[in-house]
Design a protein around this nucleic acid. Structure first.
Lengths: 140, 140
DNA sequence: TTAGATGCAAAGTGTTTGCAGCCTG
DNA sequence: CAGGCTGCAAACACTTTGCATCTAA
């Protein structure tokens, strides 16, 4: 838990139990949860937790570049503890978002001149292996 | 206008004036408009036009792969007439979305095995040239 | 002590749904 | 003529705002 205390202190923002719990949850649950998932998970431990706090905290952490918000799924934001640069794959069948580690070297190079690039996202949509296999079985 | 009639007929869906207007608008306005922009533009010509029709039509066109929906901006969907595969750059300053033509060859290759990839999106966030120049001027 | 964080309720915004009437094929 | 499309109003879902209370530093 000290890990998260340190991150907050480095960024000079207040250390609160709620913030620590949210960071810990995101760090330990890499399935890119939405606000509701985080909320209902942490509500169990701390019944007075408010959804507003989740929103506030996620926004604060995002501003400080500790986490990132994924817009991949269209109707809701998904959150991601920002350890490394990686891309994402959304399975249209099961809704899960998977991390993809692919580098695209000729990308940044071309952009640099015209644009100042702060974030590079790649995302893919389709069907994941598990869902494809399930589908195969159904057909048999 | 015949162009759009043909596209609809090829996909065996009904040809209606509303659909034609929406397609024409998207084809001629490549700034990736949101629903409201399309709605208010076309409402002028056809005051009885409903926003529901915009949503229905965009969804239908999307299902038929004629247009695509961009989730890049988080709080709303942006639409794009689907002529070619390309990526997008969102300027955080002015909100505009620009088309970017960069290929990433080693991408699909890696994905093929694990996933069935239907859509490949790349998007970048930052600041566009015009906004950067505006900012420079303000500083002087 | 005090600036900032929390949490409740209410408002806001973009999208979806239900349904009656209309139009394309 | 029939099934699909349109458009209105109401419902929804996710997020933001206003504000009183509480807490970390």
């Amino acid at each position: 838990m000290n890990k998260y205390v340190n991150i907050l202190k480095e960024h000079e923002i207040k250390v609160t139990p709620q913030r620590l719990e949210i960071m810990k949850y995101l760090d330990e649950h890499r399935e890119h949860p939405n606000v509701d998932k985080i909320y209902s998970a942490l509500k169990k431990k701390n019944p007075s937790l408010s959804k507003t706090t989740i929103y506030n905290t996620l926004e604060t952490l995002r501003e400080h570049n500790i986490i990132q918000a994924l817009t991949i799924s269209g109707n809701e934001l998904r959150y991601d503890f920002k350890n490394s640069v990686h891309h994402h794959f959304l399975c249209k069948e099961c809704g899960q978002i998977f991390d993809i580690d692919v580098e695209c070297p000729n990308l940044n190079k071309m952009l640099k001149d015209e644009y100042r690039v702060d974030e590079v996202h790649g995302y893919f949509k389709g069907e994941c292996k598990a869902c494809r296999e399930k589908e195969e079985k159904r057909k048999k």
